[in-house]
Protein backbone atom coordinates (compact mmCIF):
# COMPACT_ATOMS: atom_id res chain seq x y z
CA UNK A 1 0.00 0.00 0.00
CA UNK A 2 2.72 2.47 0.98
CA UNK A 3 4.66 1.54 -2.12
CA UNK A 4 1.62 2.10 -4.26
CA UNK A 5 1.06 5.54 -2.79
CA UNK A 6 4.70 6.46 -3.27
CA UNK A 7 4.65 5.30 -6.87
CA UNK A 8 1.53 7.30 -7.55
CA UNK A 9 3.04 10.36 -5.93
CA UNK A 10 6.16 10.06 -8.07
CA UNK A 11 4.00 9.85 -11.17
CA UNK A 12 2.53 13.19 -10.19
CA UNK A 13 5.83 15.00 -10.73
CA UNK A 14 5.77 14.94 -14.53
CA UNK A 15 2.09 15.85 -14.40
CA UNK A 16 2.80 18.91 -12.28
CA UNK A 17 5.62 20.02 -14.54
CA UNK A 18 3.42 19.56 -17.57
CA UNK A 19 0.48 21.33 -15.97
CA UNK A 20 2.56 24.32 -14.89
CA UNK A 21 4.22 24.54 -18.29
CA UNK A 22 0.86 24.37 -20.03
CA UNK A 23 -0.77 26.95 -17.76
CA UNK A 24 2.22 29.22 -18.14
CA UNK A 25 2.62 29.04 -21.90
CA UNK A 26 -1.06 28.99 -22.85
CA UNK A 27 -1.53 32.41 -21.38
CA UNK A 28 1.54 33.97 -22.90
CA UNK A 29 0.00 33.21 -26.27
CA UNK A 30 -3.12 35.22 -25.61
CA UNK A 31 -3.10 38.36 -27.71
CA UNK A 32 -3.35 41.67 -25.89
CA UNK A 33 -1.22 43.71 -23.57
CA UNK A 34 -1.60 43.04 -19.84
CA UNK A 35 0.06 46.36 -19.05
CA UNK A 36 -2.66 48.12 -20.95
CA UNK A 37 -5.45 46.24 -19.28
CA UNK A 38 -4.00 47.26 -15.95
CA UNK A 39 -3.58 50.95 -16.64
CA UNK A 40 -6.69 51.47 -18.76
CA UNK A 41 -7.28 53.67 -21.75
CA UNK A 42 -5.85 56.83 -20.29
CA UNK A 43 -2.28 55.55 -19.92
CA UNK A 44 0.56 57.00 -21.95
CA UNK A 45 3.02 54.83 -23.88
CA UNK A 46 5.76 55.65 -21.38
CA UNK A 47 3.62 54.56 -18.46
CA UNK A 48 2.91 51.28 -20.20
CA UNK A 49 6.58 50.66 -20.92
CA UNK A 50 7.68 51.21 -17.35
CA UNK A 51 5.05 48.80 -16.09
CA UNK A 52 6.11 46.13 -18.56
CA UNK A 53 9.66 46.45 -17.25
CA UNK A 54 8.44 46.17 -13.68
CA UNK A 55 6.52 42.98 -14.39
CA UNK A 56 9.31 41.43 -16.45
CA UNK A 57 6.99 41.01 -19.40
CA UNK A 58 9.81 41.74 -21.82
CA UNK A 59 12.08 38.93 -20.54
CA UNK A 60 12.41 35.81 -22.68
CA UNK A 61 9.76 33.20 -21.89
CA UNK A 62 12.11 30.55 -20.40
CA UNK A 63 13.44 33.15 -17.99
CA UNK A 64 9.92 34.14 -17.01
CA UNK A 65 9.02 30.48 -16.44
CA UNK A 66 12.12 29.82 -14.36
CA UNK A 67 11.46 32.88 -12.22
CA UNK A 68 7.87 31.84 -11.76
CA UNK A 69 8.64 28.29 -10.69
CA UNK A 70 11.27 29.47 -8.25
CA UNK A 71 8.72 31.74 -6.67
CA UNK A 72 6.11 29.00 -6.49
CA UNK A 73 8.46 26.72 -4.61
CA UNK A 74 9.06 29.50 -2.15
CA UNK A 75 5.34 29.76 -1.63
CA UNK A 76 5.01 32.96 -3.62
CA UNK A 77 2.24 32.68 -6.18
CA UNK A 78 2.77 36.15 -7.55
CA UNK A 79 0.73 39.31 -7.52
CA UNK A 80 -2.45 40.03 -9.41
CA UNK A 81 -1.89 42.56 -12.15
CA UNK A 82 -5.39 43.90 -11.64
CA UNK A 83 -5.66 44.22 -7.89
CA UNK A 84 -2.00 44.32 -6.77
CA UNK A 85 -2.91 41.83 -4.09
CA UNK A 86 -1.03 38.59 -3.66
CA UNK A 87 -2.59 35.74 -5.59
CA UNK A 88 -2.41 33.59 -2.49
CA UNK A 89 -4.60 36.07 -0.66
CA UNK A 90 -6.99 36.44 -3.59
CA UNK A 91 -7.40 32.69 -3.85
CA UNK A 92 -7.64 32.09 -0.14
CA UNK A 93 -10.88 34.05 0.07
CA UNK A 94 -12.38 32.46 -3.04
CA UNK A 95 -11.31 28.84 -2.87
CA UNK A 96 -13.33 28.15 0.28
CA UNK A 97 -16.41 29.48 -1.53
CA UNK A 98 -15.86 27.10 -4.42
CA UNK A 99 -15.08 24.17 -2.15
CA UNK A 100 -18.20 24.85 -0.11
CA UNK A 101 -20.31 24.94 -3.26
CA UNK A 102 -18.71 21.81 -4.71
CA UNK A 103 -18.92 19.80 -1.51
CA UNK A 104 -22.53 20.72 -0.87
CA UNK A 105 -23.32 19.92 -4.51
CA UNK A 106 -21.58 16.57 -4.11
CA UNK A 107 -23.46 15.85 -0.89
CA UNK A 108 -26.76 16.56 -2.62
CA UNK A 109 -25.65 14.40 -5.53
CA UNK A 110 -24.58 11.49 -3.33
CA UNK A 111 -27.50 11.58 -0.93
CA UNK A 112 -30.21 11.96 -3.52
CA UNK A 113 -28.41 9.95 -6.18
CA UNK A 114 -27.62 6.96 -3.98
CA UNK A 115 -31.07 6.92 -2.39
CA UNK A 116 -32.82 7.12 -5.73
CA UNK A 117 -30.52 4.47 -7.14
CA UNK A 118 -31.12 2.06 -4.28
CA UNK A 119 -34.87 2.46 -4.25
CA UNK A 120 -34.99 2.11 -8.03
CA UNK A 121 -32.96 -1.08 -7.88
CA UNK A 122 -34.94 -2.59 -5.04
CA UNK A 123 -38.27 -1.63 -6.57
CA UNK A 124 -37.24 -2.38 -10.09
CA UNK A 125 -39.80 -1.41 -12.74
CA UNK A 126 -41.98 0.37 -10.21
CA UNK A 127 -43.27 3.86 -10.96
CA UNK A 128 -40.53 5.24 -8.75
CA UNK A 129 -37.91 3.43 -10.80
CA UNK A 130 -39.31 4.80 -14.06
CA UNK A 131 -39.67 8.34 -12.82
CA UNK A 132 -36.28 8.57 -11.19
CA UNK A 133 -34.46 6.93 -14.08
CA UNK A 134 -36.18 9.20 -16.60
CA UNK A 135 -35.20 12.10 -14.37
CA UNK A 136 -31.63 10.82 -14.28
CA UNK A 137 -31.58 10.62 -18.07
CA UNK A 138 -32.66 14.23 -18.33
CA UNK A 139 -30.17 15.02 -15.61
CA UNK A 140 -27.13 13.76 -17.50
CA UNK A 141 -28.23 15.71 -20.57
CA UNK A 142 -28.80 18.95 -18.68
CA UNK A 143 -27.21 22.24 -19.70
CA UNK A 144 -26.64 23.34 -16.12
CA UNK A 145 -26.37 27.03 -17.00
CA UNK A 146 -29.90 26.83 -18.35
CA UNK A 147 -31.12 24.88 -15.34
CA UNK A 148 -29.61 27.56 -13.10
CA UNK A 149 -31.41 30.32 -14.96
CA UNK A 150 -34.68 28.40 -14.84
CA UNK A 151 -34.31 27.94 -11.09
CA UNK A 152 -33.72 31.66 -10.64
CA UNK A 153 -36.71 32.40 -12.78
CA UNK A 154 -38.94 30.05 -10.82
CA UNK A 155 -37.71 30.35 -7.24
CA UNK A 156 -36.42 33.92 -7.20
CA UNK A 157 -38.31 35.90 -9.84
CA UNK A 158 -41.67 34.18 -9.70
CA UNK A 159 -42.03 32.64 -6.25
CA UNK A 160 -39.58 34.86 -4.29
CA UNK A 161 -38.51 31.89 -2.18
CA UNK A 162 -34.77 31.95 -2.60
CA UNK A 163 -32.14 34.66 -3.11
CA UNK A 164 -30.78 34.75 -6.66
CA UNK A 165 -27.16 35.51 -5.90
CA UNK A 166 -24.36 35.77 -3.40
CA UNK A 167 -23.50 33.82 -0.27
CA UNK A 168 -25.06 35.79 2.56
CA UNK A 169 -27.67 38.53 2.94
CA UNK A 170 -26.37 41.96 3.80
CA UNK A 171 -28.01 42.31 7.19
CA UNK A 172 -26.72 38.96 8.40
CA UNK A 173 -23.49 38.95 10.36
CA UNK A 174 -21.09 36.08 10.54
CA UNK A 175 -17.78 35.63 12.25
CA UNK A 176 -15.48 34.22 9.59
CA UNK A 177 -13.10 31.43 10.53
CA UNK A 178 -12.66 29.15 7.56
CA UNK A 179 -14.49 31.27 4.98
CA UNK A 180 -16.79 28.29 4.49
CA UNK A 181 -19.96 29.98 5.63
CA UNK A 182 -22.02 26.93 6.53
CA UNK A 183 -19.18 25.60 8.63
CA UNK A 184 -18.42 28.95 10.22
CA UNK A 185 -22.02 29.51 11.21
CA UNK A 186 -22.13 26.05 12.77
CA UNK A 187 -18.88 26.61 14.60
CA UNK A 188 -20.12 29.87 16.04
CA UNK A 189 -23.59 28.50 16.67
CA UNK A 190 -25.07 31.24 14.52
CA UNK A 191 -28.32 29.70 13.28
CA UNK A 192 -29.53 32.78 11.50
CA UNK A 193 -26.40 32.85 9.37
CA UNK A 194 -26.60 29.10 8.81
CA UNK A 195 -30.15 29.32 7.53
CA UNK A 196 -29.31 32.32 5.39
CA UNK A 197 -26.22 30.86 3.80
CA UNK A 198 -28.03 27.57 3.26
CA UNK A 199 -30.75 29.41 1.38
CA UNK A 200 -28.07 31.02 -0.74
CA UNK A 201 -26.25 27.81 -1.55
CA UNK A 202 -29.33 25.69 -2.23
CA UNK A 203 -29.94 26.64 -5.87
CA UNK A 204 -26.35 26.80 -7.10
CA UNK A 205 -25.49 23.53 -5.37
CA UNK A 206 -28.52 21.77 -6.83
CA UNK A 207 -27.76 23.09 -10.31
CA UNK A 208 -24.12 22.12 -10.06
CA UNK A 209 -24.98 18.77 -8.53
CA UNK A 210 -27.55 17.78 -11.13
CA UNK A 211 -25.29 15.92 -13.53
CA UNK A 212 -23.30 14.09 -10.85
CA UNK A 213 -26.56 13.25 -9.10
CA UNK A 214 -27.95 11.68 -12.25
CA UNK A 215 -24.73 9.78 -12.95
CA UNK A 216 -24.58 8.49 -9.39
CA UNK A 217 -28.23 7.45 -9.41
CA UNK A 218 -27.78 5.43 -12.58
CA UNK A 219 -24.53 3.90 -11.39
CA UNK A 220 -25.97 2.96 -8.02
CA UNK A 221 -28.98 1.38 -9.59
CA UNK A 222 -27.03 -0.80 -11.98
CA UNK A 223 -24.44 -1.94 -9.43
CA UNK A 224 -27.16 -2.64 -6.93
CA UNK A 225 -29.07 -4.70 -9.45
CA UNK A 226 -26.01 -6.79 -10.13
CA UNK A 227 -25.41 -7.38 -6.46
CA UNK A 228 -29.04 -8.02 -5.59
CA UNK A 229 -29.12 -10.84 -8.09
CA UNK A 230 -26.19 -12.60 -6.53
CA UNK A 231 -26.49 -15.71 -4.48
CA UNK A 232 -25.53 -14.39 -1.10
CA UNK A 233 -28.29 -11.83 -1.17
CA UNK A 234 -30.80 -14.51 -2.03
CA UNK A 235 -29.43 -16.54 0.81
CA UNK A 236 -29.80 -13.61 3.13
CA UNK A 237 -33.38 -13.22 2.02
CA UNK A 238 -33.96 -16.87 2.61
CA UNK A 239 -32.55 -16.55 6.12
CA UNK A 240 -35.27 -14.03 6.74
CA UNK A 241 -33.12 -11.00 7.48
CA UNK A 242 -34.91 -7.70 7.56
CA UNK A 243 -35.05 -6.17 4.14
CA UNK A 244 -33.44 -2.82 4.90
CA UNK A 245 -30.62 -4.60 6.67
CA UNK A 246 -29.91 -6.70 3.63
CA UNK A 247 -29.87 -3.70 1.42
CA UNK A 248 -27.68 -1.54 3.55
CA UNK A 249 -25.38 -4.08 5.03
CA UNK A 250 -24.74 -6.32 2.10
CA UNK A 251 -25.86 -4.83 -1.10
CA UNK A 252 -24.69 -1.29 -0.63
CA UNK A 253 -21.36 -2.55 0.64
CA UNK A 254 -20.78 -4.31 -2.62
CA UNK A 255 -22.08 -1.53 -4.78
CA UNK A 256 -19.97 0.94 -2.90
CA UNK A 257 -16.80 0.65 -4.99
CA UNK A 258 -18.13 1.55 -8.43
CA UNK A 259 -20.03 4.43 -6.80
CA UNK A 260 -16.80 5.62 -5.22
CA UNK A 261 -15.10 5.87 -8.61
CA UNK A 262 -17.95 7.87 -10.00
CA UNK A 263 -17.84 10.24 -7.05
CA UNK A 264 -14.11 10.76 -7.52
CA UNK A 265 -14.43 11.50 -11.20
CA UNK A 266 -17.34 13.84 -10.62
CA UNK A 267 -15.39 16.12 -8.36
CA UNK A 268 -13.36 17.32 -11.29
CA UNK A 269 -16.55 18.01 -13.13
CA UNK A 270 -17.76 20.05 -10.18
CA UNK A 271 -14.64 22.22 -10.19
CA UNK A 272 -15.10 22.88 -13.91
CA UNK A 273 -18.86 23.31 -13.72
CA UNK A 274 -18.25 25.90 -11.03
CA UNK A 275 -17.24 28.36 -13.75
CA UNK A 276 -20.75 28.33 -15.18
CA UNK A 277 -22.63 28.02 -11.91
CA UNK A 278 -20.68 30.74 -10.19
CA UNK A 279 -21.23 33.04 -13.14
CA UNK A 280 -24.98 32.57 -13.04
CA UNK A 281 -25.40 32.81 -9.29
CA UNK A 282 -22.80 35.54 -8.72
CA UNK A 283 -21.01 33.16 -6.39
CA UNK A 284 -17.69 34.74 -5.39
CA UNK A 285 -15.63 31.63 -6.03
CA UNK A 286 -12.51 30.63 -7.81
CA UNK A 287 -14.23 29.42 -10.99
CA UNK A 288 -15.64 32.77 -11.94
CA UNK A 289 -12.45 34.44 -10.82
CA UNK A 290 -10.22 32.39 -13.07
CA UNK A 291 -12.60 32.89 -16.00
CA UNK A 292 -12.55 36.65 -15.53
CA UNK A 293 -8.80 36.63 -15.09
CA UNK A 294 -8.40 34.76 -18.37
CA UNK A 295 -10.49 37.42 -20.09
CA UNK A 296 -8.46 40.25 -18.61
CA UNK A 297 -5.14 38.41 -19.08
CA UNK A 298 -4.18 38.64 -15.44
CA UNK A 299 -1.30 36.19 -16.00
CA UNK A 300 -0.13 35.60 -12.45
CA UNK A 301 -3.66 34.89 -11.27
CA UNK A 302 -4.56 32.48 -14.05
CA UNK A 303 -1.28 30.60 -13.88
CA UNK A 304 -1.39 30.04 -10.18
CA UNK A 305 -5.11 29.43 -9.92
CA UNK A 306 -5.06 26.84 -12.68
CA UNK A 307 -2.08 25.22 -11.04
CA UNK A 308 -3.90 25.02 -7.73
CA UNK A 309 -7.09 23.69 -9.29
CA UNK A 310 -5.14 21.06 -11.21
CA UNK A 311 -3.18 19.98 -8.14
CA UNK A 312 -6.38 19.78 -6.14
CA UNK A 313 -8.09 17.77 -8.85
CA UNK A 314 -5.17 15.36 -9.23
CA UNK A 315 -4.95 14.86 -5.47
CA UNK A 316 -8.65 14.12 -5.20
CA UNK A 317 -8.32 11.54 -7.94
CA UNK A 318 -5.38 10.05 -6.13
CA UNK A 319 -7.32 9.83 -2.91
CA UNK A 320 -10.26 8.10 -4.57
CA UNK A 321 -7.88 5.66 -6.23
CA UNK A 322 -6.25 4.89 -2.92
CA UNK A 323 -9.61 4.50 -1.22
CA UNK A 324 -10.66 2.20 -4.01
CA UNK A 325 -7.62 0.04 -3.47
CA UNK A 326 -8.15 0.13 0.24
CA UNK A 327 -11.74 -1.02 0.12
CA UNK A 328 -11.44 -3.49 -2.72
CA UNK A 329 -10.35 -6.86 -1.36
CA UNK A 330 -9.61 -8.19 -4.84
CA UNK A 331 -6.78 -5.77 -5.48
CA UNK A 332 -3.43 -6.33 -3.91
CA UNK A 333 -1.13 -3.43 -3.26
CA UNK A 334 1.97 -4.28 -5.20
Amino acid sequence: MINYIIRRLLLLIPVFIGVSLLAFSLLRLIPGDPAKSMLGNKATAAQLQSLRLELGLDDPLPVQYKDYMEDVFQGDLGYSIKSHDSVLEEISTRLPATLELSVVALIFAIVIGVLAGIISAVKRNSWFDHVSMTGALFGVSMPIFWLGLMMIWLFSVTLHWLPPSGRLSVGVHLQLITNIYLLDSLLTGNWQAFKDSFEHILMPALALGTIPMAVIARMTRSSMLEVLNQDFIRTAHAKGLAKYLIIFQHALKNAFLPILTVIGSQFGFLLGGAVLTETIFSWPGVGRYVYQSILSRDYPVVQSTILIIAVLFVLINLITDILYKYFDPRIRYD
Partner: peptide, 24 residues
Amino acid sequence: MRVIDILMAFPSILLAIAIVAVMG
Protein backbone atom coordinates in the same frame (compact mmCIF):
# COMPACT_ATOMS: atom_id res chain seq x y z
CA MET B 1 -0.24 8.43 -20.86
CA ARG B 2 1.63 11.25 -19.14
CA VAL B 3 0.41 13.67 -21.77
CA ILE B 4 -3.10 12.36 -21.24
CA ASP B 5 -2.66 12.72 -17.48
CA ILE B 6 -1.71 16.36 -17.95
CA LEU B 7 -4.74 17.03 -20.12
CA MET B 8 -6.94 15.32 -17.57
CA ALA B 9 -5.54 17.35 -14.70
CA PHE B 10 -7.66 20.28 -15.87
CA PRO B 11 -11.40 20.35 -15.47
CA SER B 12 -12.52 20.07 -19.07
CA ILE B 13 -14.54 23.26 -19.40
CA LEU B 14 -11.70 25.27 -17.87
CA LEU B 15 -9.22 23.81 -20.36
CA ALA B 16 -11.60 24.58 -23.21
CA ILE B 17 -11.95 28.17 -22.01
CA ALA B 18 -8.19 28.57 -21.86
CA ILE B 19 -7.74 27.14 -25.35
CA VAL B 20 -10.39 29.42 -26.82
CA ALA B 21 -8.88 32.38 -25.00
CA VAL B 22 -5.57 31.65 -26.70
CA MET B 23 -6.83 30.86 -30.18
CA GLY B 24 -9.61 33.38 -30.30
